[in-house]
Design a protein around this nucleic acid. Structure first.
Lengths: 230, 230
DNA sequence: GCTTAAAGTGTAAAATACACACTAAGAGAG
DNA sequence: CTCTCTTAGTGTGTATTTTACACTTTAAGC
């Protein structure tokens, strides 16, 4: 059943750059292995064609779930890539989204429709198809920019986490070490963390207190234009 | 000459939100009056369909020039709007760009291919077609965010300008008044302004010194990741 | 030369950012 | 059971940055 238009149209796709943090605090990105040409067997960002009855974000979520099993994550539009020649077959414009997940909840390569999906270190990704290296680089830059003035990263952490875990996350994303006392002062002063009556378990040293993110308070402060700069 | 595809494709357009500052320091946006349905005779953002042989940014620049005569301006991708029903005829996905121009150089309604083009106060725009109110609002928010940490706004000012003009611009965009002495200290400390041996002319009071923006220095500092926060 | 209008300029107080090192707690080994 | 190992947790003084604030200067128009 062919579809005919008076003028030619670029194909429209979405691609997802999903970041996760593994148990060694390494930042990872979720990739799939392409089953079909072009770039057959190469690794690429999960993504695919936008259908006529879904919004762009819906398309991104659907493709992400179909190809990797990951769903229900934080996703935000990143940038739209539309240069000529980014797909060798056809003119393809791709709306890229980036997302953050807590890797402990989305562990190994999930797979449904998926050929093969796996987490790769952001610092040393495999060769990527299309202009996906550029998309990944753009997403990383955006993540670094965002983390400075938005309490992102709660998406990347488990529901209950220690301040040290959080600090490590920030150090990983920003690529620099931070002072422990100053970091703790700042994040606690924001007032978005609820201390729990629980502590870490199974560690061979003093157990750290666990915290959780106060989503309600966050949204309340966000309404008021509060600045979450770290 | 029809074009046929195996699967249906959304139409792809670009829209431009071009801001300018008029001589009373009011922030304006460049709009066109639609000549054809839908939304015939209503005001809308300049924009149109992306061709197969041009990048997204090229398309934005081309449409902007065709419809308003404005060219050679600073343009940056804003966001891609792809919700269902944003165009009553067809599924249309639009990549929005925002731009800044010095209104004194692009004065009245330029027009080439244009039906009618004019500058409207951002504070009180006319009824806009499609989801263009939302696009305009997004662009304004982005502009406000950007102005805080990027020496934008040189795009909006004449080549030679006074510090008071620049301050008024910032006050207009941010919607708040700023302290004269502190503002001057900060912008001069950045070192991006070259003082000229010239002063304002034709004013009925003490003439202000003119400055120009040092583009070379700006790019040099930007390379180094310098922070231009005001 | 008097009026008017905006240009231009410095300092003190307050707030914020930064640097920095020791004690506390708990697990595991012996 | 005590010693060791490892990470948790905590406060202060100093430097820097940000803020608030008002008068003198200059030039044009009358």
């Amino acid at each position: 059943m062919p579809y005919t238009y008076e003028y030619p149209r670029p194909a429209l796709t979405v691609d997802c750059v999903v970041f996760g943090l593994d148990d060694q605090n390494a930042l990872k990105v979720l990739l799939i292995q392409r089953r079909i040409p072009p770039f057959q067997d190469q690794w690429a960002l999960p993504g695919g064609f936008v259908r006529m009855d879904e919004s762009l974000e819906d398309a991104a979520r659907r493709e992400l779930q179909e190809e990797t099993g990951v769903k229900g994550v934080f996703l935000e539009q990143l940038y739209t890539f539309g240069d000529l020649g980014r797909d060798p077959r056809d003119r393809v414009v791709s709306v890229a989204y980036y997302g953050l997940v807590n890797l402990t909840e989305y562990p190994i390569q999930a797979a449904t429709d998926a050929r093969d999906a796996a987490w790769f270190p952001v610092a040393s990704p495999p060769y990527l198809a299309f202009d996906h290296p550029q998309i990944l680089a753009t997403a990383l830059t955006r993540l670094q920019g965002k983390v400075r003035y938005q309490p992102i990263g709660f998406e990347l952490l488990p529901a209950k986490f220690t301040l040290t875990q959080m600090q490590k996350l920030y150090e990983t994303i920003l690529g620099q070490t931070l002072d422990k006392r100053n970091f703790r002062k700042k994040v606690l002063k924001m007032g978005l963390l609820t201390p729990l009556a629980e502590v870490q378990m199974g560690v061979a040293h003093r157990a750290a207190k666990l915290y959780q993110f106060d989503l309600a308070k966050y949204q309340q402060l966000k309404e008021k234009g509060f600045n979450f700069e770290l």
